[in-house]
């Protein structure tokens, strides 16, 4: 469904991603693992074309999307949930959802506000509140809900478990599995191996922008030395 081929990305002269190549299969949950600064967020942004890769291609459903404007990538069915959340703090919860709204997409769930409030009951009570009044966990939920309003086929979740309370992390894991059951494909980045283990089918590990491992969860468990070398457990 999504394929990266020797993707390279730079910030000015700094080489951030180095020949990244992996695929995300339809209906799968893939975890992109790595330490802080490994290049996880840049990978996500390169897929969305918010950072334009210099070299390599990103293709989605067989179509080369490299060099597209981010809004075109989103319209094609990729939903991006940024790590820093970036909700619109001056807008209400409902208005935040409105920004994300896109027409229904064939073969995907057509989300409505009510369905999302069912998925995230905490948000339902706060629908009229401004984004800035929400807690960190609620903001994280709102970011996911806002992206789902675009009825994406593939969701890019950048560190969904970061900086939120353990109870909510657990809730997040449930949500991701629910999305998978609905037929969504998910690429999520994580530092938290436990969280990834709970939801992912496949794992990609990167370190300093270079790919160190790609395989199933079982493969990774068979090689504890890889885990110890590249992940802080």
């Amino acid at each position: 469904m999504l394929e990266l081929k020797t993707v390279n990305a730079f910030y000015g002269k700094a080489h951030v991603l180095n020949d990244l190549s992996f695929t995300v299969g339809h209906g799968k949950v893939v975890a992109l693992l790595g330490r802080n600064g490994a290049g996880k967020t840049t990978t996500m942004k390169s897929i969305m074309q918010m950072v334009q890769p210099r070299g390599g291609t990103v293709s989605y459903q067989g179509q080369d999307i490299t060099g597209w404007a981010p809004h075109r990538v989103a319209k094609a069915g990729l939903g991006y949930v940024p790590e820093e959340r970036r909700i619109f703090t001056q807008l209400t919860v409902l208005e935040n959802l409105e920004v994300g709204r896109q027409p229904p997409r064939e073969g995907c769930v057509t989300w409505t506000e009510e369905m999302l409030f069912e998925l995230f009951p905490n948000l339902a009570e706060r629908r009229g509140n401004r984004g800035k009044a929400l807690s960190g966990g609620e903001q994280q939920m709102l970011t996911i809900a806002r992206t789902l309003m675009g009825n994406p086929a593939l969701v890019l979740l950048d560190e969904p478990s970061e900086g939120i309370a353990p109870v909510i992390v657990e809730q997040m894991a449930h949500v991701i599995l629910k999305l998978k059951n609905e037929g969504l494909t998910v690429l999520l980045s994580e530092q938290n191996l436990h969280f990834a283990q709970a939801v992912a089918d496949q794992v990609v590990i990167i370190e300093s922008g270079t790919q160190k491992f790609a395989g199933s969860l079982a493969d990774l468990q068979a090689h504890p030395e890889i885990r110890d070398a590249y992940l802080s457990v």
């Binding site: 981010p70 809004h71 989103a74 319209k75 991006y80 940024p82 619109f88 001056q90 994300g100 675009g150």
Partner: peptide, 15 residues
Amino acid sequence: RAATQDREMVGALGV
């Protein structure tokens, strides 16, 4: 109003 705050994010949401 959303774009006033963060126009890049608005773009990433398909606008």
